[in-house]
């Protein structure tokens, strides 16, 4: 019973169970020959979902109605502008990073300005700002792909101790996010606001400041992910962020973070991101057609969410 209680208390466990299960089924197809390759690919591509997922997690934790829909546009703009500024020069990498952070901070400020000053619900505010951001990205470079500086391109596809560099980066960011959430005052405030905004305000929590910082954090993480992804895939593309809109929300939910807000979960983001990549790989490996693949992906995700949420928030 205590073991069961442990499972009940750890909503993130389910995403890992699911990830491990799909991983196992996939490598069984080749009798284990694909173990190393699949694991490395999963860690590589999960890293991008993890980085954007962490940002979305903080936003969702702020409570009902809080979600950032400008993540794809932010990724696209950050990748586009940073690569244009660096113009394949290794010497300009620092500048490119600063521009990336600047883009993230700028969009974060713009998003919260819409939400707070114009009193637009976050879902509408971030959606409309994403149109503007996407248009700026289109205007910046008209869809022309500029290659990343050689050093960055190499770094983003290389591995250290057998683990892809982008996964190490995601780990560093995750540890930072976990400390922020579990050990720092900021995380407590975010959770408190998500549990009851009015109570949080009455308790003296600087609600607006915390919400502002949260939207900014999310935009900055999206910008970093966009920067990394464009270096990794050999250039920014106008549609490169599009699949991360649903992914960012899905990893938050599958990872055991409460959709209604108030309870966040960092490890679950890892399990969910790995799972989302592996489930597609598994179905591709077994040759499922597109229709079957989508239906099964949906069914599996629903199953995991039900399993996780039943045991989770009590």
């Amino acid at each position: 019973m205590t073991a069961l209680r442990f499972v009940f208390a750890k909503p993130w466990l389910w995403s890992f169970v699911a990830a491990f299960g799909t991983w196992l089924v996939t490598i069984l197809f080749t009798g284990g020959a694909s173990t190393l390759g699949l694991s490395q690919a999963a860690l590589t591509f999960a890293a991008f979902s993890i980085i954007v997922g962490l940002g979305q997690m903080f936003v969702v934790t702020l409570g009902p109605g809080n979600v950032d829909l400008s993540i794809p546009a932010t990724m696209t703009l950050a990748g586009t502008v940073a690569l244009k500024v660096m113009d394949t020069q290794d010497g300009a990498i620092l500048l490119g990073l600063l521009v990336t952070l600047g883009v993230g901070i700028g969009i974060g400020i713009a998003n919260y300005a819409l939400i707070k000053l114009l009193r637009i619900p976050p879902i509408i505010a971030t959606l409309s700002s994403s149109f503007i951001v996407q248009s700026i990205a289109i205007a910046t470079n008209r869809g022309i792909r500029i290659k990343p500086p050689a050093v960055l391109a190499e770094f983003s596809i290389a591995s250290f101790l057998g683990v892809p560099n982008v996964a190490w980066l995601a780990l560093v960011i995750s540890v930072f996010a976990w400390v922020l959430l579990e050990k720092g005052l900021f995380g407590r405030w975010v959770s408190a606001i998500g549990q009851n905004m009015r109570a949080a305000r009455l308790a003296g929590i600087p609600v607006d400041g915390v919400r502002f910082l949260t939207y900014m954090l999310c935009a900055v993480l999206a910008a970093i992910a966009g920067f990394l992804l464009s270096c990794f895939s050999g250039g920014a593309a106008l549609n490169m962020g599009s699949e991360y809109l649903l992914t960012s929300i899905a990893v938050v939910v599958i990872g055991g973070t409460a959709v209604a807000g108030g309870f966040a979960n960092v490890p679950g983001i890892w399990g969910a991101s790995l799972f989302l990549f592996l489930v597609v790989s598994m179905l591709n490996t077994y040759g499922a057609s597109a229709g079957v693949r989508m239906v099964l992906t949906g069914v599996i995700i629903i199953a995991v969410i039900i399993a996780a949420s039943r045991k989770a928030v009590r």
Binding site: T30, T35, A41, A42, F45
Partner: peptide
């Protein structure tokens, strides 16, 4: 022997191929 959807996008194709390639 294998079929993946790349959505006509470089990064999506890369991800999908990387996922099926080990198998």
């Amino acid at each position: 022997v294998g079929s993946v959807h790349g959505d006509w996008a470089q990064d999506v194709a890369q991800k999908a191929v990387a996922g099926i390639l080990p198998s």
